[in-house]
Structures are given as structure tokens and as C-alpha cells.
Simulated scan of single mutants.
Amino acid sequence: MSVVRRRRLGRPSSVATVIAIVFCAVWAFPTYWMVKTAFTPRPDALSSTPTFLPLNPTLENFETAIFQAGFFDNLRSSLIVTVGAVVFAVLLGLFAAAALSRFRFGGRRTILVIVLLIQMIPGAATLIPQYLVFNEAGLLGTYAGLILAYVSMTLPFSIWMMRSFFLALPAELEEAAQLDGASTWQVLTRILFPLVLPGVIATSVFTFINAWNDYLIAYTFMKDQSMYTLPVWLASFTSPLTGTDVSGQMAASVLFSLPVVVFFVLLQRKLVTGMSAGAVKG
């Protein structure tokens, strides 16, 4: 009976399959419409009669997006702050997770609770206090300030994610290494850190996506338009005089989305492994 029940549970019903297909179609349709509009000439994109396929596909919109004022400057800004946020969030999260999981010291549980509470606070709620602090510290309008803001936004998740991987490692590994004469630093760098690589990859992807896609913090903290990031640059396709260049903006959105898609495709297997392992090994 149990075998029959397991087989029945393992076979999705036709209703569940249809629901999954409809859900995926609804979820993917905005992305399809963005790509379709990116290849549609502007007069056709503004037509009152929508078409589901570009009748006269063109690459002119991508040319418009690439040569839009500020594209290369803002692309450089996005790369600088995103890479910086990923590096610092992963490094700080890695060492903090190692300390909170492999060492015993007073106040460890209190720190974990504080980290969890910070993760639960909405980012918009801390935007104004963070702005005031950064203004007093002279970090507004600088890449360092924006990187620090992104690190503070993603660090709690990074710590909790990688801590679950450290907890899954048996203590016998450290004991064996110490018996062989390895120092604490050698145990961390040569044994523990390589074993939590899936968690590092999952954290890197999470931080990359959050930093690359952020609009609110970049728009609030940066003063010089040449130092804006690409999400803020996308707003330049809207003008009070000429309206919104829908086709150009969608082409720019496609270009903006490509790095995230490529980054995710390259690391998707290790990302799924890291997320699933982190979810069950806490």
C-alpha cells in the first residue's frame, strides 16, 4: 500500500500540470513582452492594437539604448558597486558565519538574534536613518558609501546562509586537522572554507542580484548623474517633452538584464545545490 501511495504521490495530476503551465506562462509573459517590444519600432509599440509578434523587427532600439547619454558611465558604476558589494558581503559573511558556528563565546546567541531581526526589517524603513548617518560620515555620492549600503542590506542573509553550511560540517574535521598541527587559520582556509563553497556561490548570486537591480538606494545616495547605476539610467528614457521611448527603454532593459541572466545561468547548478543544502542543514 505504501508503495502504491508513493507512486500516486509521485505522479502529478493533469490539473496540477495545467495549473503549472498557466502559472509559468503568466510569470514569463512580461519578460516575453519586454523582449518583443525591444525589437519593435516605436510607432508600432505605441499602436493601440497590440501585436504578439514584432511585425517589423529592428535593432535600432538597441543602438538607441547603447548610445543613450550616460550608458557607459552608469554601466561602469553598476559594475564597480556590484562587484564591490559581492566581494565584501561574501568575505564578511564568511568570517562572521565561521565565528558564529565554530567558536563559542559570550553573546553569540544574542548576535544571531540581532542579525535575524535586522534581516526582518524592510529596507525602506532604514533608508532615511542610513542616509543621515552616511551624510555625517561624508559617504554620500561615493562608490564606497553605495557599496557599504548594499553590504549592510545583504550581510544578514549572507551570514545565515553560510552559517548553515558551517553547522553541517562535522567537528571531527577540525579535530583531525589540529592533531596534525594545523593552526586555526589553516583549518579555516584549507578545510572549512572550501567545503562551504556552495554557500558562498549562493550568497554571491543573491548579493549580485540585489545590488545590480537596486534603484532606490542608488538614486537616493548618489548625487552625480555620471555615478548613477543602470536602474537609475533606465529612467532617462522618459522625458516631459517627448514622453517615454517605450521601445528604447525595453531594449535598455534587455541589455540591463543580460548580466544577471548570464551570471545565473553560469552558476545555476551550484546555486540550486547551495540553496537546497542551506535550507535543510540548519
Rank of each mutant, 00 (worst) to 15 (best):
A98G: 02
S78E: 10
G243D: 08
T51D: 12
I201K: 05
P198R: 09
F134E: 02
V151K: 06
F263A: 14
W185T: 13
R11Y: 04
S78T: 15
A137K: 07
I121R: 02
R7E: 11
G107I: 05
P30S: 08
K36S: 13
A149K: 05
F237M: 03
A38E: 02
F39Y: 10
R190D: 08
N213L: 09
L92W: 06
D180I: 02
L92R: 05
A69R: 15
C24P: 00
L271C: 04
F71W: 13
G243C: 09
P50A: 07
Q178E: 14
S77T: 12
V196N: 03
V265Y: 01
A149R: 08
T110W: 10
L112I: 06
A97L: 10
A85M: 04
G84Q: 12
L75T: 13
S101N: 06
D224R: 13
F88I: 15
L255Y: 06
P240Q: 02
Y215V: 07
G107M: 07
P41V: 07
L179N: 11
E174P: 08
A99T: 09
P194S: 07
S14N: 10
I80M: 09
F105C: 12
F263H: 01
W185F: 13
V35N: 00
L59F: 13
L197A: 14
A89I: 01
D214N: 14
Y131S: 08
P231H: 12
A89F: 00
I80N: 06
T37D: 06
A218T: 04
A28S: 13
A98C: 11
A97C: 09
K270M: 09
M250V: 02
I121N: 04
G181V: 09
D245G: 11
R5I: 13
A277D: 02
F72R: 05
V262K: 02
G93W: 11
F71M: 05
R102H: 03
G199S: 07
L258R: 00
G106F: 09
I209G: 00
L127P: 00
F256N: 04
A69G: 11
M120T: 13
L92V: 14
M1Y: 03
S48N: 11
V15H: 08
V246M: 11
T31Q: 01
T184I: 10
F88T: 14
P156C: 06
N213Q: 12
K270S: 10
A252G: 14
Q268V: 13
T51L: 13
L179A: 14
F206E: 03
F39H: 03
T229V: 13
D245L: 14
Q268W: 00
V265G: 04
V15I: 14
R5Y: 07
N61E: 06
A85S: 15
L266P: 00
V265K: 00
F23V: 15
L173R: 06
I111S: 05
G199W: 07
D73T: 13
P194V: 07
D73C: 01
F237N: 05
W27V: 12
T126L: 15
A144K: 10
R108T: 01
A16I: 03
V187E: 01
L146F: 03
V90M: 10
T154G: 05
A144M: 06
V115Y: 11
V246A: 14
A97P: 03
